[in-house]
C-alpha cells in the first residue's frame, strides 16, 4: 500500500442542492434495479403475455384487436404496478441493512436528495420497462394490422368497399389515443412507487411495505365507490358537513382514487380520451406523486438510522 503523502487535495465546495448528487444516486439505483434477475423474469413474462395475446382468439379482426389491446394494456398496467411496488419497497431497507445508507448520508448528501435519487431511479426503470412493453405491444399491433390488411385485400377487389374495410382496420388498431393510455399506466405506477417509498420510510420491513402498498392499491380502487354510496345514503339528499368533507378529502389523500386511472379501459375500448380529462388525470397523478414524496421526506428527515 502507498502512503497518504501521494493524496491530492480534493475539497469541492458544498452546495445545498445538487442535481449531480441526485444523478449519481439515480444512476446507481437504476443500475441496481436492472441487475435484479427477478425483474427480468417479470418483464419477459409480461412481454410474452403481450406477444401471445395476438394468437388468443380467432374471431373477427375487431374482436381480435379488442382482446389484444385489453390483454396488452392490462398486462402492462399490472406488471408496471408490480415492478413499481416491489422494486421501491426493497431499496431503503436494503441500504439500511447493509449499512450502505450510513456511508452515503455520512457524506454531505441531504436526505431529500437521497430520496429523490432513489425515486427517480425507480421511475427511470419503470420508463424503460414500460417502453419495452409498449414497443412489443405496438409491434404486435402493427403486425396484426398488416396481416388484417393482407386478408382484406385478398378477399375484396379494389374499390370503396375495400377502402372502408381498411379504414375500419386502421381505426381498430393503432390510434394516437393509445399514447395517453400508456402515459396513464406510467403515472399510476409512479404514484404507487412514491406511495411505496413513503411507506418504506417508516415500515419495519419490506414485506410490510409491500403488503401495505398492495392494500392501499385495492382500497384506492374501492374507496370512490364506497364514498359515493355513503354520500347517497345522506338523509334527504343533504350536502355533507364540512367535517365530513374534510374527512373524505383526507381519506382520498391517503387512499388515492385509482378509479381515475381507469381511462386505460376507455382507451382499450377504442374511445377517445378528451385532452382535458387526460391532463386533469395527469395533474392529479403528479400531485399525488409530489405529495407522497414530500411526506416521505418529512418522515425520512427525522428517521433515526
Amino acid at each position: 500500500m502507498a502512503t497518504t503523502e501521494t493524496l491530492i487535495p480534493a475539497h469541492p465546495r458544498h452546495t445545498l442542492f445538487s442535481f449531480a448528487r441526485i444523478r449519481a444516486i439515480t444512476t446507481n439505483t437504476l443500475l441496481e434495479l436492472v441487475r435484479l434477475k427477478v425483474f427480468y423474469f417479470m418483464l419477459i413474462f409480461a412481454l410474452v403475455l403481450i406477444g401471445s395475446s395476438a394468437f388468443m382468439v380467432k374471431f373477427t379482426f375487431q374482436q381480435q384487436f379488442q382482446v389484444l389491446k385489453d390483454v396488452s394494456l392490462g398486462a402492462m398496467s399490472i406488471f408496471t404496478w408490480l415492478l413499481a411496488v416491489l422494486s421501491t419497497a426493497m431499496l431503503l431497507p436494503k441500504d439500511i441493512e447493509d449499512r450502505t445508507l450510513y456511508t452515503i448520508l455520512a457524506k454531505p448528501v441531504p436526505r431529500l436528495e437521497y430520496l429523490l435519487g432513489k425515486l427517480l431511479g425507480v421511475l427511470l426503470m419503470l420508463l424503460l420497462a414500460l417502453g419495452a412493453m409498449s414497443a412489443v405491444f405496438l409491434a404486435v399491433l402493427y403486425l396484426r394490422e398488416q396481416s388484417a390488411f393482407a386478408d382484406a385485400m385478398r378477399g375484396q377487389a379494389p374499390g370503396e368497399a375495400l377502402d372502408a374495410a381498411l379504414r375500419e382496420i386502421r381505426a381498430s388498431t393503432f390510434t394516437f389515443n393509445l399514447l395517453p393510455g400508456i402515459c396513464v399506466i406510467y403515472l399510476k405506477a409512479a404514484l404507487c412507487a412514491s406511495l411505496t417509498l413513503l411507506l418504506s420510510t417508516f415500515a419495519s420491513s419490506w414485506i410490510f411495505t409491500v403488503i401495505t402498498s398492495v392494500m392501499v392499491y385495492f382500497i384506492g380502487h374501492v374507496q370512490p365507490i364506497a364514498r359515493e354510496y355513503w354520500l347517497s345514503q345522506m338523509p334527504g339528499g343533504h350536502d355533507p358537513s364540512l367535517v365530513l368533507k374534510l374527512f373524505l378529502g383526507l381519506v382520498a389523500l391517503v387512499f388515492p382514487d385509482f378509479q381515475i386511472f381507469n381511462l386505460v379501459d376507455d382507451v382499450a375500448a377504442g374511445n377517445a380520451v378528451p385532452a382535458a380529462m387526460f391532463f386533469k388525470t395527469a395533474a392529479l397523478g403528479l400531485g399525488y406523486v409530489g405529495t407522497y414524496t414530500f411526506v416521505a421526506y418529512l418522515s425520512f428527515a427525522n428517521k433515526e438510522l
Binding site: N28, T100, Y102, T103, K107, P108
Partner: peptide, 17 residues
C-alpha cells in the same frame, strides 16, 4: 449537512453495492 464535508465514515461490517 455541510459539516459532513470534513468527515469520512467507515461503519462496522460495511457492505457496499
Amino acid at each position: 449537512v455541510e459539516s459532513r464535508e470534513e468527515v469520512g465514515f467507515l461503519p462496522e461490517n460495511p457492505y457496499f453495492y
